[in-house]
Design a protein around this nucleic acid. Structure first.
Lengths: 245, 245
DNA sequence: GCAAAAGTGTTGAAGGTACACCCATGT
DNA sequence: ACATGGGTGTACCTTCAACACTTTTGC
């Protein structure tokens, strides 16, 4: 937190407009059964850079901000370009703007998003536009990424773990109807620890956010009741920002 | 959350660099004994705009981002230019970038800051650079502000109220040594409700964040012990972002 | 002595954790 | 029948809110 001398805003504006570019990137999360593991884990898609700086390294999907589009729209667009899917959740994460984070001055407005694993192609290593340069990675063991993207993913994961505790974003990783075991799996994957099924059941039942259906998921054992989310309950999430737009 | 068609990042970059400017503004909070009130309230400084758009209206202090300075530095600088003081706390709030939030396209990276009320000039209506165009307002009853700044202040207040619950930012509104009553006043002003002195004492004592001194604040009644914050305790706050830099 | 704030003790409600236990199904 | 996950009951512990109570000062 350095404190520089005052300068006239007008002149600063000129140079900024000439040399500062604004990018929008998104950390996209979904769940997947990991190899060599009984449990599901958090995975995210990365894009291989084809030009310098950091050509060859993996980076977060993103692109330049267009003058005619809002920040949210730019995040949605770059997200769609990469995965071909609409996110079930999208929220701004942070604006990164250190002078030395890139050879040229770039301000990155970073978003984070959730995608439902059942949305077919999201889980395969390639969708329709089968692309060698997009791959899904285990969030727990990433390679070295371009720019400061490792820091950014760390922060996004921290936000995800935090948020799962006090909001119902887990919803964003499930289909419309789900069993309590499936919901619990989401929490366990994000938090990285097992939860007591009995206590978990009571907590989410008492929260009033779930509506039991009369349908059951039949499997290899006793059928489990299917639930859906109660849309009425608007959990305090992003505060005043939720009601804008 | 609209979804636009894909376009080539390169061409978008050009137009963005030509027509998008990046501003940095800061919502600065401190506490002050409000007129017509027994209790302290949250106040913030605003700047009267001297040119269009919104000439004459009050706005958040800020300025254009210089190419050579980081976002944090830009926030510190504009903050110093307005109040002449260093903040006791500074954190990025959000990046606002709707296309129509200003006649020309402006991305505003907004910060929020805390200032210790004891820092003399902060509480007076004017400091050394006695300035008619900077005034402190009660955060609870603001006039109509320029641009979307009313929304921004609302969000900053929400973040402040939230954060006071799980971090020790109240520290940022107090001198080094303080009584429990003074600390409680801070919480009461931010949360807007009275707290039980007995329970409040136990909660903060058990949190382990306070170190009792052997000094006392003498006043009109029984002297109150002075405390200071325990610097060792690093409460989970901004996660991985705290350890960067 | 009295008012008022500092500080302590006690109680009951509420929520979380651990874990024993019963239920319903496929094999 | 039995293994397994679905689902219920309960006991214990911690935290929090309410409020009665004691202590120490200025006046």
């Amino acid at each position: 937190m350095t404190r520089t001398e005052a300068r006239t805003p007008a002149s600063a504006a000129e140079s900024a407009a000439e040399q500062t570019r604004v990018a929008v990137s998104t950390v996209i999360f979904t769940l997947r059964r990991l190899p060599d593991s009984e449990t599901a884990g958090v995975v995210l898609p990365l894009v291989r850079r084809t030009r310098d700086p950091h050509a060859g390294l993996w980076a977060l999907p993103g692109g330049w901000l267009d003058v005619t589009e809002g920040l949210d729209a730019a995040a949605s667009r770059t997200l769609a370009e990469t995965t071909g899917l609409a996110p079930s959740y999208l929220e701004q994460l942070y604006a990164f703007g250190d002078v030395d984070r890139s050879p040229t001055r770039v301000i990155s407005i970073v978003y984070w998003a959730l995608i439902r694993p059942d949305a077919s192609t999201a889980l395969g290593d390639r969708g329709d536009g089968s692309d060698e340069n997009v791959q899904w990675f285990d969030a727990a063991s990433l390679p070295r990424l371009a720019f400061d993207h490792n820091d950014i993913v760390d922060y996004a994961l921290w936000r995800l773990r935090n948020k799962v505790g006090y909001s119902r974003i887990a919803h964003g990783l499930l289909a419309d109807e789900f069993t309590l075991a499936e919901l619990r799996e989401v929490y366990e994957a994000i938090l990285g620890r097992r939860l007591d099924p009995a206590n978990f059941r009571r907590q989410v039942e008492n929260s009033g956010t779930l509506i039991p259906t009369d349908r059951f998921r039949t499997g290899s054992h006793r059928p489990a009741r299917l639930y859906r989310y109660n849309q009425d309950v608007e959990l305090a999430d992003r505060g005043p920002l939720d009601s804008r737009h």
